[in-house]
Amino acid sequence: MTRGLTIGEFAEITHLSVRTLRRYHESGLLEPDRVDPVSGYRYYTAAQIPQAQVIHRLRELDVPLAVVRQILATSDADARAGLVAGHLRRLEDELDRTRAAVVSLRRLLSPAVPPEVVLRTEPPRLVAAVAGVVGHDEVLTWYADAMAELDEAVAGHERLGPPGGQYDNALFRDGRGPVLVYRSVADPPERGRVRPVELPGVELAAVVHHGSHDDIDVTYGRLGAWVVDHALAVDGPVHETYLVTPADTPDRTAWRTELAWPVFRLNPSPNRPTPNR
């Protein structure tokens, strides 16, 4: 029987610490080839070097222990690749959330620029729409599916304006609420989930958000502060109008989204200015 590699020698070859190798052993990720029953010394083989390095790389990517075990126990290369790819997608989602938080924080910490808010009247109009009750964490997926269905349903219909959406305040307050997305087209069709819907006339306080939605919450916050400062109250769901979208250009800096709240005037305060109409 060959002596094998001591844990120290194995650590030097794999560039993993003895402490890390012991932890891998205790967690069942990497069993030594043998353990001396008298001394308790651990011995490894050269064939275990790649496995140790694979485990190390997976843990560097914060792959959970249970998933690491699945990957090591799976002999099918495609299945292993699928497990790794699934975790990488979760990492990418986390990176997106981190990037969005950093963008928002930078804007919040920079000197506030007064938003260019306009007050306008939106007349009643008939649109092609898809409506549903959606959880806050489901909105993006629901929106993508609904807009794809809308685009298919209104193909060939004359476009009368940009697409939009209305998001009930319960969605943000309670985490779930009514949502409606629409396209303004001539002769709105009825097909699948798509229905003609009449949007009522409304008074809006509106501002245009520039760029991606990573920091759209900051623009919403500044719009809300403006509404309060001008003695107005919110009276209905959030309105979004997608003026320039990823479908129009891949340039994120060129994207434009109008954010608006239905408003009504509170009792006027002598210390507050009257908005220009």
Rank of each mutant, 00 (worst) to 15 (best):
A205E: 10
A206V: 11
A206F: 00
V207N: 03
V207Y: 07
V207Q: 00
V207L: 05
V208H: 09
V208W: 12
H209C: 08
H209Q: 03
H209T: 06
H210G: 10
S212W: 13
S212N: 06
S212C: 08
S212F: 14
H213L: 13
D214T: 14
D214E: 14
I216N: 06
D217F: 06
V218Q: 11
T219G: 09
G221I: 14
G221Y: 15
G221N: 11
G221E: 15
G221L: 15
L223H: 11
G224R: 15
G224L: 15
G224E: 13
A225Q: 14
A225I: 02
W226D: 09
W226G: 08
V227H: 06
V227M: 07
D229A: 15
D229M: 14
H230M: 05
H230L: 00
H230R: 07
H230Q: 01
H230V: 09
A231R: 12
A231K: 01
A231P: 00
L232H: 06
A233E: 12
A233T: 13
D235L: 01
G236D: 12
G236C: 10
G236V: 02
V238D: 08
V238L: 14
T241Y: 10
T241W: 13
Y242C: 07
Y242Q: 04
L243A: 03
V244C: 08
T245W: 03
T245D: 00
P246Y: 09
P246W: 06
P246N: 08
A247P: 03
D248G: 00
D251C: 05
D251N: 09
D251A: 04
